[in-house]
């Protein structure tokens, strides 16, 4: 039975997971029991009372008060148990402990960013300490998204006009998938992120490194990192194929047509402008769906992206 249980639910990696799983199995057991009673009863009656050759009058029994009370009362009791139990665990999962680490989660078409108390913005990867409650303040910059971490059994919508809260305390080291579960358009199924759980000292070290490591790196390598980290790769290819946005290969210093009929030469200024104000000059044949990265990328990071695009030229 243990193996079936492990197989049914995803890996359990938070303090709340075992509680949710316990209710799940309780409901599962109750459901199986009732399903069994109904289906076996049905098959039994169908076989036992198959119509014989001659169609005759049948029993006129149409009620049995004792039976009806039993089959109303027993499910009612079980449903009350489910309701109360489910509500209690829900209270636990919706009220964050006071000493929680607060991380801001922002959903945006189609990537996640995680803002740490020190101001560091981590795109696409939520790194959290082990055995420490983490409270996420979730919001969206455009449409509704929803943050879902199956291993933690938490899910909360990201709304554009208010903060919502979810919290968890990770109990296992490792990396776990984070999904968007509120339909948000073209790349909804690619709006993924990972949750990485580290021991507390490693977490501190990671935050320290991450907050500073981007300074002084090789610009092309930095640009390449950002290409993946900031999910540029959801919409821009580097092999010349056209995705939601234009490819980055061989566009440097080329002349491109814009949707308003004019044209532009791809240079430092154009790329910088496209990163900060994507709606200003839209390439012909594309929809202006790119969000602004103002405030998300630092000066040296924008320069890194420019250097990276420069490097994507076939010699």
């Amino acid at each position: 039975m243990k193996t079936f249980i492990d197989w049914l639910m995803p890996e359990s990696a938070s303090t709340i997971s075992p509680q949710v799983d316990a209710i799940t199995y309780f409901i599962f057991a109750v459901s199986l029991l009732f399903f069994f009673i109904i289906v076996v009863g049905m098959i039994h009656f169908v076989i036992k009372y198959r119509r014989q050759e001659k169609l005759e009058k049948t029993s006129g029994v149409d009620h049995n008060t004792a039976l009806e009370i039993v089959w109303t009362a027993i499910p009612t009791v079980l449903l009350v148990v489910m309701f109360v139990w489910g509500f209690r665990v829900y209270l636990d999962m919706s009220i964050a402990p006071k000493d929680s680490l607060e991380i801001k989660v922002t959903g945006q078409k189609w990537f996640w960013t995680f803002t740490y108390p020190n101001g560091y913005v981590s795109p696409g990867e939520l790194v959290v300490p082990l055995n420490q409650p983490v409270k996420t303040l979730i919001s969206s910059k455009d449409v509704i998204h929803s943050m879902f971490v199956p291993a933690f059994r938490i899910k909360m919508d990201a709304l554009p006009n208010r903060y919502t809260v979810a919290w968890f305390e990770a109990t296992k080291e490792g990396t776990f998938p984070l999904y968007c579960t509120e339909y948000c358009g073209t790349s909804h199924s690619k709006m993924l992120a990972t949750v990485k759980v580290l021991p507390y000292d490693q977490y501190l070290k990671w935050l320290d490194d991450a907050s500073s490591s981007m300074d002084g790196a090789d610009p092309v390598a930095l640009g390449e990192k950002i290409y993946a980290r900031n999910a540029c790769n959801t919409c821009h290819s580097i092999d010349g194929s056209s995705m939601i946005g234009p490819s980055w290969r061989n566009i440097w210093s080329s002349s491109q047509n814009l949707s308003d009929g004019s044209s532009v030469v791809v240079d430092e200024n154009y790329i910088r402008e496209s990163i900060l104000y994507p709606q200003k000059k839209i390439r012909a044949g594309y929809q202006g769906v790119m969000p602004s990265y103002q405030g998300l990328l630092k000066e040296n990071e924008i320069e890194g992206v420019i250097a990276y695009i420069k490097s994507l030229e076939d010699k």
Partner: peptide, 19 residues
């Protein structure tokens, strides 16, 4: 109907909602 019970139960619905 029985699978609806999982979804009516608050704590479990949080996990199963929109899956």
């Amino acid at each position: 109907g029985l699978t609806g019970l999982f979804l009516g139960t608050l704590a479990v619905d949080v996990h199963l909602h929109d899956t």
